[in-house]
Design a protein around this nucleic acid. Structure first.
Lengths: 368, 368
DNA sequence: CCAATTGCCGAAACCGGTTTCGGAACCGAG
DNA sequence: CTCGGTTCCGAAACCGGTTTCGGCAATTGG
């Protein structure tokens, strides 16, 4: 007897779940046949395979992932360990990132296991724990570091993973990344076309792999614009607003200050706004800025921050899809993708009202 | 033969996990005895129970949760469905919230399954799915609504849950909540002591249960301060910065504008800053403001926003502990806790430099 | 036409646990 | 000394799947 499924769609028939035993009985087949039919074994005829699939469909059979896991060792769950000690831009994107992962995962009937850790060591330990307890079949690694302990662990234990971000040592690594270097290059070129000649660069954290790339992009932009690199215009380690303010002050204290600044991180770029407010400079006229990330706060600044937006949600989605493919056996070399950041020109970059010399004079007046 | 665990602590011995069969063999007991010993069955002598526990400890035995789940139906996982259609203050707290849940869960050997949904209907559907697939044994419900469809579903299916926030119909509900009403009351009293007589209130979204409570707290504050309520000073539906700006403008357009505003939501309160910047008003002097949430952005405002801070991480931690207790059988009535918000006085509330009349005149000058 | 494959499926073992059931050993009481 | 009741443990069934193995029927090759 097949229990009819009433109430909400595929919700719950009273004493609900249909098991493989029930399904096989209803079909007049053995459960081994049903199992192999559903899992694509070659020794099942096409006709019965179809019959089984249809029967499973109509009876609403869905195998319990933990019941299969006991034999297969796989639970159909993606793992994500969020490291929360770094006060960088991860937070505002977290919800979108999760959303992207979640839709891709649930589209395939997978789920997402999340844990947090407050240090790199603990992150690795947590991941090891999750793997050992079979709580996740693979991991999405956000914020790839240049030398990443997580990669070492997962490689050693042969656990599938995909990185959000590229790495210097790509062996066995799958990744999805945004082309931050192209964004930085385009930012410099854009500012150059607006008439800027002294364009500074404020990078993010050096331990992150992206900072290496973005610096290269900045340099490529200078080259494309025919500008020569001035080391004093390159700063780094600016992740938070305070950091960005600090670096901005340092840049404006130069004998020949920049008239435009390219930031690798939006939150740091917002520090420039504060310094400008203090010094009576108008962003986008006295000092131009272009940044990267596309955080919502940037849109609320005055003038709104021109920034290269990253579609974090889409990234999460793609990463989840790629990780599932990876777990199912696709080789890491086939799973490497990049996407461009999209420039949102909002008014924080304009033609220089003052050149570097005039700006320096104005700043000198201000500070005395 | 017991395999020795080398490398990193409880990591992985090659061909690792010790099973209950191995453990029972090593102890010279049957696996049923071992199982019952570890699960606290009464028909196991205290001495063997101890022996088993010690053996499990030294051999590093940890039962696979999905192997137990196949019989018990429980996977030792907490569920959290994050709804991302509402653009309210949920985001900045998400990481902290997850961190709190994560530590409490992993302390008990539980994990966290996260999903997202972009509408209430989909949230409910997602939760039903997770329950049916046994991906979570219970749920943490963030952002309790006055009339919450999630509660209805879970109650109907007899699935354990705890709410972050109270509810009007408490039957069968467990919760943890911050006393936002006390915060609002204290805010009004504080402003009154500073010399304010016209104190406005800008509430959050009416569908959330907390808004009812915070309004009541505002009123209690007026009563405690000996002020009479003026309906024109009460606004609502302000969650985002734009909303807060809109409501601030409406308040300042009154014939007798408030000299201080209490906000139920920090991000909305930041809208007041923007309006003041536009109008040339100095926050904390020409117009005072106290808010609620304690978002990081508030500390970066000028002057920093005085706000009642919510320890979201602690809340997540406690909620996870309570949910585990709930799943283990504690009655919901025993699982109801509240905690106060902590006032961070940062300078956005001061003695009024102008009274309501003078402020109105100044605003009139400004707008002409 | 017979032997050897091949295609297709069922029976049964298995995965790592939990839970039911029955029985041996021990106990105090009659 | 026997008997009924505890105390405590092992054997075996079970949970819902997967996978191995073997066998029957149909097909192919010689």
């Amino acid at each position: 007897m097949i229990q009819t499924v009433h109430d909400l769609g595929p919700a719950e028939a009273p004493q609900g779940r249909v098991t493989i035993t029930q399904l096989s009985a209803a079909l007049g087949l053995s459960k081994s046949t049903v199992s192999r039919a559903l899992n694509g074994y070659p020794d099942i005829s096409e006709s019965t395979r179809l019959r089984v699939r249809r029967g499973a469909e109509t009876m609403g059979y869905r195998p319990l992932s933990h019941a299969q896991a006991i034999r297969t060792g796989r639970v159909r769950a993606l793992g994500l360990v969020v490291q929360i000690d770094d006060h960088d831009s991860q937070r505002p994107f977290l919800a979108d990132f999760l959303a992207g992962i979640s839709v891709a995962a649930s589209a395939e009937g997978w789920t997402l296991t999340v844990a947090t850790a407050d240090s790199e060591a603990r992150t690795v330990r947590t991941m090891a724990q999750l793997v050992e307890d079979r709580k996740a079949d693979g991991f999405i690694l956000p914020r790839t570091l240049s030398d990443d302990a997580r990669v070492a662990l997962l490689r050693a234990h042969d656990v599938p993973f995909v990185m959000f971000g590229r790495t210097a040592k790509p062996e066995g690594c799958a990744w999805f990344d945004i082309l931050g270097e192209d964004a930085m290059r385009d930012a410099v070129v854009h500012l150059s076309r607006l008439g800027h000649h002294r364009i500074a660069f404020v990078n993010g954290g050096g331990r992150y792999n992206y900072s290496r790339l973005r610096l290269a992009g900045y340099r490529a932009g200078l080259a494309a614009a025919g500008l020569i690199e001035d080391p004093v215009l390159i700063r780094s380690e600016a992740l938070r607003t305070e950091d960005g303010a600090r670096e901005t002050r340092a840049l404006l204290a130069l004998d020949a200050p920049p008239t435009a600044v390219v930031f690798a991180v939006d939150h740091a770029a917002l520090g420039l706004y504060r310094v400008c407010a203090d010094l009576g400079l108008r962003v986008g006229r006295d000092l131009s800025v272009i940044s990267y990330d596309g955080v919502p706060d940037g849109a609320y600044a005055d003038p709104p921050l021109s920034s290269f937006k990253v579609d974090t949600r889409a990234a999460g989605q793609r990463l989840a899809e790629m990780l599932i493919a990876r777990i199912r056996g696709t080789s890491p070399e086939e799973l490497r993708e990049t996407a461009p950041a999209v420039f949102a020109d909002r008014g924080s970059a304009g033609p220089p009202r003052l050149d570097s010399g005039a700006l320096a004079q104005r700043l000198a007046r201000e500070t005395t």
